[in-house]
Amino acid sequence: MSQKLHDHALQSQKQVIDRLTMIHKRQRIGHAYIFDGSNGAGKEAVAQYFTKLLLCMDPKENVPCETCNSCKRIESGNHPNVVLIRPDGQDIKKDQMSELIMKMTKKGYEEGRKVYVIVNAERMNSSAANTLLKFLEEPEGNVTAILLTNSYPSILPTIQSRCQRISLQSMNRQSSIESLVEKGVTASMASTVTMMTANVEAAYEMAQEDSFVQRRRLVLKLVEAIEQRTPGEALLFIQTDWMPFMKEKSDCEQGLDLLLFAYRDIVAVKAGLQSTISYPDQLEVFTGHSVKNTYSSLTVKIDAVLQAKKRLHQNMNRTLLLEQLVLTMQEGLLFV
Rank of each mutant, 00 (worst) to 15 (best):
E137W: 10
K103H: 12
R123K: 13
R162H: 07
I118F: 07
M195S: 11
Q13G: 02
L55I: 12
K4W: 04
N81W: 01
N78H: 13
K221G: 14
I34N: 00
I118W: 00
M1K: 04
I92M: 06
L256K: 03
I118A: 07
I17E: 05
Q228P: 04
V193Y: 03
V223T: 11
H313C: 05
C252G: 04
L10Q: 05
N69V: 08
S191H: 12
L306T: 12
L5F: 09
G42N: 01
V185N: 07
L84N: 11
I146L: 10
D265T: 00
A203C: 04
F335M: 10
L325T: 03
Y152A: 03
N62D: 15
I101W: 05
Y33W: 09
Q3G: 02
C56I: 11
V119G: 00
K94A: 09
M196H: 01
I146W: 00
L10N: 03
G77C: 05
A268P: 03
M189S: 03
K221D: 15
A234P: 10
E201T: 00
L180G: 02
T328W: 02
S290R: 02
L325K: 02
V83T: 15
L334W: 09
P231W: 01
I34M: 11
L220T: 14
L136Y: 04
I302Y: 09
T186N: 12
H31P: 01
L298S: 11
C68A: 01
H24I: 00
E110T: 04
E224V: 10
L147I: 08
E99D: 15
S38E: 13
A304G: 02
C65Y: 13
R264T: 01
Q214W: 04
F335I: 10
S191C: 12
K25N: 04
L273G: 06
Q330T: 06
Y279T: 05
A47K: 02
D18V: 07
E201V: 13
I226Q: 01
D265V: 00
P153M: 02
M329C: 02
N130T: 09
V285N: 14
C56M: 12
L133S: 09
E323A: 01
R318D: 06
L236Q: 15
V46G: 05
H31W: 07
L20A: 08
N172I: 07
H31L: 04
K221S: 14
T287C: 06
Y263C: 04
A207W: 10
S38A: 14
A203H: 10
R28M: 04
K52P: 09
L147C: 00
Q239A: 15
Q208H: 01
V83R: 14
E99Y: 06
S161E: 13
D91L: 07
P280R: 03
S275N: 13
N315I: 04
L259W: 06
R229H: 15
M57G: 12
N315A: 10
Q330F: 07
F237M: 15
S188L: 05
M171Q: 14
I23T: 07
L334M: 14
V200W: 05
E182H: 06
Q48P: 00
F135W: 02
S250Q: 15
L256C: 03
L133Y: 11
F335V: 11
L312M: 01
T299V: 06
V143N: 13
D7A: 13
L236S: 15
E227T: 11
T287R: 08
L156Q: 03
I101R: 11
A128C: 05
M195W: 03
Y263S: 04
E111I: 05
L236N: 14
R86W: 00
Y109A: 08
S151D: 15
L298M: 14
W242V: 15
Q282C: 14
